[in-house]
């Protein structure tokens, strides 16, 4: 029962997110809106209800199961994208290399700057 009660809270937040999406013609999915509303309401309450923690842990632990049917599609729909594999591979490999480099350099730089400012004060 605690798990189902927690699951109901998650479903209600999801439905609320979907309703807001449709109502305000938002381009963001109902799940993401529900997640943001969930985080904000937890920040306001300052603690996580036990039922909610149980249900969310259960769902997060089987995330792999939930995304598997989507992954399977790659093998069956691959032929649709023939001729674009070079573009896809370059974007994934080179793009990821550049974005990892950007993240490390920017964060390292900002941390060093804020440390310097602190020592100057």
């Amino acid at each position: 029962m605690p798990m189902l009660r927690g699951f109901l809270i998650l479903v209600l937040f999801f439905l609320l997110g979907e309703a807001l999406r449709v109502l305000f013609l938002l381009p963001v999915s109902g799940g993401v809106l529900g997640m943001i509303l969930m985080t904000l309401s937890l920040m306001l309450r300052g603690r996580v209800n036990d039922d909610l923690a149980t249900a969310s842990q259960a769902l997060i632990s089987v995330l792999v199961l939930l995304i598997m049917p989507g992954v399977v599609g790659v093998f069956f729909l691959a032929s649709q994208f023939s001729g674009q594999w070079l573009a896809v591979a370059a974007a994934l490999l080179l793009g990821t290399f550049l974005s990892v480099l950007t993240t490390l350099l920017v964060m390292k730089g900002v941390l060093r700057l804020s440390a310097q400012r602190r020592s100057n004060d």
Binding site: F7, L10, V11, F13, F14, G17, E18, S29, G30, G31, V32, G34, M35, I36, L37, M38, T39, L42, M43, V48, L52, A53, A55, S56, L59, I60, L63, L65, L66, I67, M68, P69, G70
Partner: peptide, 17 residues
């Protein structure tokens, strides 16, 4: 199975918090 991704996305708000 995949329909559960909606509530599972909402559930990610808890570790984020």
């Amino acid at each position: 199975i995949t329909v559960l991704l909606g509530p599972a996305t909402v559930a990610l708000g808890i570790p984020l918090y």
